[in-house]
Design a protein around this nucleic acid. Structure first.
Length: 744
DNA sequence: TTAGGGTTAG
């Protein structure tokens, strides 16, 4: 074995290593050893580096023991060898061995500490990483810019940006100036957590600190503009990217495509896309997403087909993007088709693929289908994640799904998923809408970081359940905890005062909100005020408020007024409101029915345009129906159904005291349409669930006075709690009373 | 001779 032999091997291996061809490096190294040539301390670090990149733990171990045997691991000049062994173990994910090497090293340099800290950060062993930071200082090695960047970037990537920012402060305090890497880590961390404005603040801070942004930092800032849809700032950054010569760079190009597409500038996005010389998977996926989101599914699909011919393999994101594009544009069939075939094209479906189908179904109102897909997903042993849960919860926000909300709640714990503010709020909503106020309160009480949205959810839940007193108590608590109310909170507060008949308190809130909270009254606040005045019979004041309001009243405002006029038997004002509503919502069946009745009563005609479909896609001639669930089975009833309940109904109808409300203008009489469906559902519930306290019913039309009285009487006589959700109100009948206090 | 940063879908 001559000295020249080793030199020759070193030169060859070095040449491959420089080009990043680590597979070849390892192959050569094996041949070299087989031919009896052993690496010196310089060559062994090269090969170890290749092991680290290729994550070849087996070969790495051999080299480690060789280094020990040959005495490369004990002296000061051997620190680089020790470091490369350490890094090899870290990159191969074997932290235990890495730590053993670290502990045995007699001398360590800054790189040693940094590598070990990097290892712990990468496996999220934060405590160990922080211990080492303290330990290195104690041993007289001050953390350098790389040490700080390792910690800051790891925390930023894990989403813990508060800690990352705290470390930035410590870094500056210790006299180490943040560099472009530090800032870029923070910018991209904020972007990933959907905190675009803070990302941009970091970028600006970097520029103010005199650190020149490079292509990477500009790309991150551009993606912040994309999520915030800041086209002008995005354009400015575009020209900055041109100045630092990184516009044709794939990275900047990709983020520009995304930014222009998200800002609706699809032509600009296409232009940039075309100019990227070496398009990668990000470029194609971003452009496909751009077209799909703009509604051009055909163009998106053309690119989807073309990319593989251009040498770029489609990945799960490509397929998911296309599937999501189809489902968002209403072509569910194509979406499901792609979902079915993707695996035959060698691309494995992931959680996101399932989530897209679930979220799309919920979004398009197909709750049952969303639920079926969710169960299918679980039977395929695909673990639901945070997004799955967030997407599926709204599908359960109704009265006949209360047990499903509990099931999904358990699922969160079972899969050890994060219970953050968004999920907690969605659960509060779902529990409340499924009729379980107590559980909504439990989720709220257990949830530690409550935002204004959480408070709004729980306040609205109490309003829905007819507990305005508690809603107002919560509002006080919220203020005591220093949370500032927003638009929604104040509209809820006015509504709560309305429910309690406290006109002056409600009016005061309305009149002072601009002063007290710097919030200008919007349509919802006006509607709440009309409701408040209308409930206490101050119809004239309510009308004056509408007449003088600075905004154009919408259907919510007129609905509130109409309800008040009807409840107080004022035919003239009811007529007036119906005329206004018929202009705003020409297809609303309730308005149409009202118009006919009012016409009969007043002799005046209302010109109601006869649109066939109204805004929620429901047909005018859709039959009035309701559903109830008993032992996981759903039963649907329509008006006049003959379901063999005559005997029960006859018994129920014999309940004495049927006093009917005031102005009976909105209901279709049972003589005309047959027995109302909610009566059938109540009778069915009574006979088929004798052991359950609650009967839960969802109805697609408002309850009439007659059935409302009926439900009250039944709840008292049979000691049941009857919950009926109609499009306007949740009625909770108990002991002969309803939570809506007979005003809905 | 070792250590740190980026862009796409739900």
């Amino acid at each position: 074995m001559s000295h020249r032999d080793l030199l020759a091997w070193s030169a060859m291996i070095g040449a491959y290593a420089i080009r990043g061809m680590y597979g070849e490096v390892l192959a050569l190294a094996v041949r070299m050893v087989v031919e009896g040539v052993l690496p010196d301390r310089f060559l062994i670090t090269r090969i170890l580096q290749a092991c680290a990149y290729a994550e070849d733990l087996e070969l790495g171990r051999l080299l480690h023991s060789m280094a020990v045997r040959r005495g490369f691991m004990g002296r000061v000049k051997d620190v680089p060898v020790g470091n490369s062994v350490l890094v090899m173990y870290v990159k191969c994910g074997n932290l235990v061995c890495a730590r053993k090497v670290f502990d045995k090293m007699v001398c360590r340099d800054l790189g040693t500490w940094n590598s070990m800290i990097f290892g712990y950060c990468r496996s999220a062993e934060w405590e160990e990483a922080r211990c080492l930071l303290d330990a290195m200082r104690q041993e007289g090695t001050e953390p350098g810019v790389v040490t700080w960047n390792t910690l800051i970037s790891s925390y930023a990537r894990s989403g813990d940006l508060d800690v990352a920012m705290e470390l930035l402060g410590q870094m500056e305090e210790s006299g180490v100036a943040p560099d472009v890497v530090t800032w870029t880590s923070l910018v991209s961390g904020f972007v990933h957590m959907d905190r675009g404005d803070e990302a941009l603040q970091c970028f600006i801070q970097m520029c103010l600190a005199g650190v020149e942004p490079n292509g990477m930092s500009i790309a991150s800032a551009i993606s912040a503009c994309a999520s915030l849809k800041l086209l002008n700032l995005g354009r400015e950054l575009h020209s900055r990217a041109i100045k630092v010569c990184s516009v044709n760079n794939v990275l900047s190009g990709n983020s520009l495509v995304d930014m222009y597409a998200k800002c609706g500038e699809i032509v600009a996005a296409w232009r940039i896309f075309n100019e990227i010389p070496d398009k990668d998977i990000f470029s194609w996926n971003s452009m496909i997403a751009g077209y799909a989101q703009a509604g051009y599914c055909g163009k998106a699909y053309n690119l989807f087909c073309k990319m593989e011919n251009c040498g770029v393999r489609r990945n799960a994101i490509t397929w998911n993007t296309m599937i999501s594009g189809y489902i968002r544009n209403g072509d569910d069939e194509r979406a499901f088709e792609l979902f079915q075939i993707m695996e035959s094209y060698g691309v494995k479906r992931d959680t996101a693929s399932w989530n897209i189908l679930i979220a799309g179904s919920v979004h398009n109102g197909y709750y049952d289908r969303a639920l079926r897909i969710f169960h299918q997903m679980r039977s395929h042993l695909v673990r639901p994640d945070y997004i799955t849960i967030l997407s599926i919860i709204p599908a359960f926000a109704n009265l006949v799904a209360s047990w499903k909300v509990r099931e999904i709640h358990a699922c969160i714990f079972h899969h050890n998923l994060e219970m953050d503010g968004k999920i907690a709020n969605a659960l509060i909503n779902a529990y409340s809408k499924s009729g379980d106020l107590a559980s909504a309160c439990t989720v709220f009480d257990m949830h530690s970081s409550r935002s204004v949205i959480s408070w709004n959810c729980i306040i609205l839940a109490h309003l829905l359940h007819g507990s305005p007193n508690e809603a107002l108590d919560l509002f006080c608590q919220m203020k005591q905890e220093g949370v500032l109310p927003d638009h929604t909170t104040l509209a809820a507060v006015i509504k709560a005062y309305g429910l309690m008949g406290k006109v002056s308190e409600g009016s005061r809130t309305f009149l002072n909100m601009a002063n007290d909270y710097n919030i200008t009254p919007d349509l919802d606040h006006h509607a709440a005020m009309v409701d408040l005045l209308g409930r206490s019979g101050r119809l004239k004041e309510a009308y004056e408020l509408i007449d003088e309001m600075p905004l154009i009243p919408n259907s919510t405002v007129w609905e509130a007024f109409l309800t008040a006029a009807v409840k107080h038997g004022n035919v003239r004002l009811a007529h007036l409101a119906a005329v206004e509503l018929s202009v705003i919502e020409p297809g609303d069946p309730r308005v149409q029915r009202l118009a006919t009745t009012l016409q009969d009563l007043t002799g005046k005609s209302i010109d109601v345009p006869k649109a066939m479909v109204h805004n929620k896609g429901r047909k005018l001639d859709e039959v009035e129906s309701c559903s109830t669930e008993i032992r996981n089975k759903l039963y649907v009833f329509s008006n006049g159904d003959n379901v063999g309940l005559e005997h029960t109904l006859a018994e129920l109808n014999s309940v004495p005291d049927f006093s009917i409300g005031t102005l009976d203008v909105e209901e279709e009489k049972e003589e005309v349409v047959g027995v109302h469906c909610e009566k059938l559902a109540i009778a069915f519930g009574l006979t088929n669930s004798p052991h359950f306290k609650n009967i839960r019913i969802i109805k697609n039309e408002r309850m009439c006075n007659h059935c409302h009285t009926f439900a009250k009487l039944v709840s008292k006589k049979y000691e049941r709690r009857i919950l009926i959700k109609d499009p306007k109100c949740l009625h909770k009948f108990e002991d002969g009373k309803c939570s809506c206090e007979d005003y809905w």
